[in-house]
Each structure stands twice: as structure tokens, then as C-alpha cells.
């Protein structure tokens, strides 16, 4: 069984995000970039399936400028077998990503496609779902447990009311939640081997996809700075302030 994993290059979760002074976007110049944490979990899950003998090959795909090859190499160092980069000038929006991935799925014919449920930069949480719709494949989102059984995959999902387990016919799309697994550290020999693993570069034109913009980013502003607190001298003063200044309490 072949597993395809889609990964995205995003700002490192440790970095303090800054907005550009003209508010057009987040400032990514000279900022540490990393593999999106949800995508890392997706890679880990695929590698575990391979180690368990369920998967025979793990292919990892990323879309973006050449720099995203770093994240593909990271995934290869974690245990994926080969990589595909789809070269674009900028980071395309979710629907374009889904369309490109759909073409890769058609060409590669994986039994399972694993994606992160969302990327920590845009937080859209839609690529996996769009991909499912475009390919008309069953989808199991927010997975906290994935078990392949014959021609089905059982996906336990973290839903509002608790856990829901679905049996999906393969091929299927799975998006990962945070608790699915704890990704490993890449070992030194595997980092070195990753460099020798095949990495194929394609363009949207190769895949016959025309990138279109359906949304426009208007403005980015940082969250308001938290104001310093004050110390109140009595419960009465607190209640008074909550009522009259903060206006979060009514009547009396």
C-alpha cells in the first residue's frame, strides 16, 4: 500500500510572529521556517504504517518555492521514501493546493492520503476536505487514531462530543489532529540518507493545473497589546468596575 503525505513549510511555532509595517502580511524575512506540526504528525503516522508493514512506500509532497525542499528533506529524514516538490512562486491558497494534490493522487494512486488538519500559519483547515471532494474520496478528519484493516481504514476523530470512529473505504483521505502520535526525532544517519533519496520537481503546468486566486488578503494586524492590570482594594470596587468600566456585569 502506498501512502501519500502532503507537507507545508510554515513559520516555526517557536518564533514570535511579526506583522509587516505596511500590514500587508506576516513578516517572513529572515525568520526560521519549519515543517508544519500537523504535517509532521502526518509523516510520522505514514512512517509508522510502513514500519508496521502496512504501507510499502511513503511519498511526501510539498508545494511552494524551492526552499520547501528543506521540509521535504526533513520528512525524508523522518522515514519517507521519496519526495515531490511542486514549484510555485508563492504559497497558493487551499483550493489550488487541493487541485494540485488531486493531480498527484491521480498519478501516484496511493491508497491513503494523510494531511495535517490545518497549517499553523493560515489555520484554514480545508485542504483535506477539498481534496476529498475533488477526488470524491471518503475523508476522516481530525484523526486521533488510524488503523488500516483490509480494504478499510478506521479513523477515530476528535469531535465536540467525544470520539467518533469511522470506517472508510480505501483509498481515503485522513487529516491528523494533535494527539494522533508524537513525532520522532530524525536520526543522524537518516538525515544523511535523506539527501540521497529521490526528490522530483514538477510545476503546476506539468500537472495541468492553472492557479487561480479566489481570495484576496486585505489586511493583517497584530493582536492588541494587553493593557497592564490594576489592583483593586475591595470586592465592592471590583464589582463596581466590572459593572461600570468593563460593563460585563449588569443590574444589581
Amino acid at each position: 500500500m502506498k501512502v501519500l503525505v502532503a507537507v507545508k513549510r510554515v513559520i516555526d511555532y517557536n518564533v514570535k510572529v511579526r506583522v509587516k509595517s505596511d500590514h500587508t502580511d506576516v513578516d517572513l524575512a529572515n525568520v526560521k521556517m519549519a515543517l508544519n506540526p500537523f504535517c509532521e504528525i502526518a509523516v510520522e503516522e505514514a512512517v509508522r504504517l510502513k514500519e508496521a508493514g502496512t504501507a510499502s512506500e511513503v511519498v511526501v509532497v510539498s508545494i511552494g518555492p524551492k526552499a520547501c525542499q528543506e521540509q521535504i528533506r526533513t520528512a525524508l529524514a523522518l522515514g519517507a521514501d521519496r519526495g515531490i516538490q511542486i514549484e510555485t512562486d508563492t504559497m497558493p491558497e487551499s483550493l489550488n493546493v487541493a487541485k494540485l494534490l488531486a493531480k498527484v493522487v491521480e498519478a501516484e494512486q496511493p491508497q491513503l492520503v494523510i494531511l495535517g488538519k490545518q497549517s499553523i500559519d493560515a489555520d484554514n483547515n480545508q485542504t483535506g476536505q477539498m481534496l476529498g471532494a475533488l477526488l470524491d474520496l471518503p475523508q476522516g478528519t481530525f484523526a486521533s487514531d488510524v488503523k488500516v484493516a483490509g480494504d478499510k481504514v478506521n479513523v477515530t476523530r476528535e469531535v465536540d462530543g467525544g470520539l467518533q470512529t469511522l470506517a472508510l473505504n480505501l483509498p481515503a483521505i485522513v487529516t491528523t489532529d494533535l494527539r494522533l502520535n508524537e513525532p520522532r526525532y530524525a536520526s543522524l544517519p537518516n538525515i544523511m540518507k535523506a539527501k540521497k533519496k529521490p526528490l522530483e520537481v514538477k510545476t503546476p503546468t506539468d500537472l495541468g493545473v492553472e492557479l487561480k486566486s479566489h481570495t484576496r488578503l486585505l489586511n493583517v494586524t497584530p493582536p492588541a497589546e494587553r493593557q497592564a492590570g490594576i489592583r483593586v482594594s475591595s470586592v465592592d470596587e471590583l464589582v463596581d468596575k466590572l459593572k461600570n468600566e468593563a460593563k460585563v456585569l449588569r443590574g444589581g
Binding site: 528543506e70 528533506r73 529524514a77 526525532y185 538525515i191 544523511m192 539527501k195
Partner: peptide
């Protein structure tokens, strides 16, 4: 073997650890 991209990948993983 110690090419810049390799060096950088090794340091990054060492840093995580």
C-alpha cells in the same frame, strides 16, 4: 558529505533534541 544544506539539517535536529 558536509554540504551546507546537510550541515544545516543536522544542526536543526540537534537543536530540537
Amino acid at each position: 558529505d558536509a554540504t551546507p544544506d546537510m550541515v544545516s539539517a543536522i544542526i536543526e535536529e540537534g537543536a530540537r533534541f
